[in-house]
Amino acid sequence: MTVHVLLTADNHLDPSAVQYGPKRFERKRDFQRCFEILVNFALENKPDILLIGGDFYDGILPGNPTRAFVAEQFKPLHEKNIKTILVSGHHDTPRSVEQGASPLAVHARSGHVYFIQEQRPTSKKFNFGSETVNVTGMSLNPSLPADADPLAGHEISQDGDINIFLTHYPIEGFDGYFGQEVHIQKSSIPRNLQLFASGHLHNHQRKMINGTPVIYPGSTERVSFNEESERKGFVWLELDKTGIVQQEFHPTPARPMETLEFRVAGDGSLTRQIEEALEKRIDDEKILRVRVHGKVTLDQLSTYKRSALYTYAQDKFFHIEFDEEQLNVLTMVPLESLPKTTPLQELDRTFQNLLEKTGDQERPLVQEAWKLTVAKLQEEGVG
């Protein structure tokens, strides 16, 4: 007998989206729409288990409209007897007592989902026909030191017919793992599990480690321009005692994001040059970033009107932003080098200027302060 599992993570529901201005709520809806597609897929295909690997919410205080939307999604899954199991990640785990409980705990209290909020491996067992599925979950622990391995020293239960581990951490060896953060080492991956699933890395990836298939489903919507070339979606799995029998990646309609690298070339209006480049990429569904590169004179720079570009692009793209960090201005006026002085010389100059503005009564006090300051600097070896 096979067990059907739907795997997702990093849904990031209810992001701030303040940078999108009047389209803020439409951008928030993008994230809901992608999750809604996953739920509709689940209702149609009826998996035994839905696994959600952390960062379900983008923060620990999602708005009430989003909470209500999520409750409406979880209820029909529960009514179809789909077991929904969640752990929390970097965004939806409280980092202090003052921040209270994870918003996932509210949904768990409804009885519609199972939230494994423990920050150590914790198991839940489910029976599907003749098979016992043991799901071990571990939510993120934000208090671990940067060099910690959250699985170090823990025994992982494998007393089910099918054993699954669910968490939210970077794992050594995957794209997006940089090493300078809390992470799970390859050697800590339990041997011969049927599935080890994790959230945190937004790009869908799979590797075999210690005889265990390790999967990141990736995020369901693009969160940043780092993800503009990545496919977004969720994973359908069929498992038996031997491991993964079948695996399918199902894409979601994530909003397109693109970076336009614009390099200044020749004379003429910079604004008009950029408008001509934008005309070739018009798409009112797209989020576009324009990175402007090159060296310009002050006269050329005066032809760069960002406000005019925003006006030009407002109905041609969903959103546009400009990055001018690599735009350098040439100056025809040579910069004069400053005279070389020592700290004590600068101190003397400062106190001399101060004495010129000081009255007779305060002059002895300023002179004494000057003397003590010089002595202190000399004690510290400052010349």
Rank of each mutant, 00 (worst) to 15 (best):
V3D: 07
V5A: 00
D14H: 08
D14G: 09
P22M: 03
R24Q: 14
V39N: 06
A42C: 12
P47F: 03
I52Y: 01
G53D: 01
G54T: 04
Y57H: 09
D58V: 07
G63M: 11
F69V: 07
F69S: 07
K80H: 13
T84P: 05
I85Q: 02
G89N: 02
D92Y: 10
P94W: 07
E98I: 05
P103K: 02
H107W: 14
G111Y: 08
H112D: 12
I116N: 03
R120D: 01
P121Q: 07
P121F: 05
F128G: 04
P150M: 03
A152H: 12
G160S: 01
H168V: 10
I171P: 02
G173H: 01
E181W: 03
H183Q: 10
S188R: 05
I189R: 09
P190G: 04
L201T: 05
N203K: 11
R206W: 00
P213K: 06
P213G: 07
E221N: 10
V223G: 01
V223D: 10
V235S: 08
G243L: 04
E258M: 04
L260A: 06
V264Y: 10
A265N: 10
A265W: 00
L270D: 07
T271S: 05
K286W: 08
K286I: 00
L288T: 06
R289V: 10
R291I: 13
V292H: 04
V292T: 13
K295A: 14
Q300M: 13
L301D: 06
S302K: 15
R306T: 15
R306W: 09
S307H: 12
A308S: 12
F317W: 05
H319M: 09
I320H: 10
N328A: 13
V329Y: 11
T331Y: 14
M332N: 14
V333I: 15
E336F: 14
P339G: 09
T341G: 01
K357T: 14
K357A: 12
E362S: 12
P364D: 13
A369S: 15
W370C: 10
K371G: 11
L372A: 14
K376D: 14
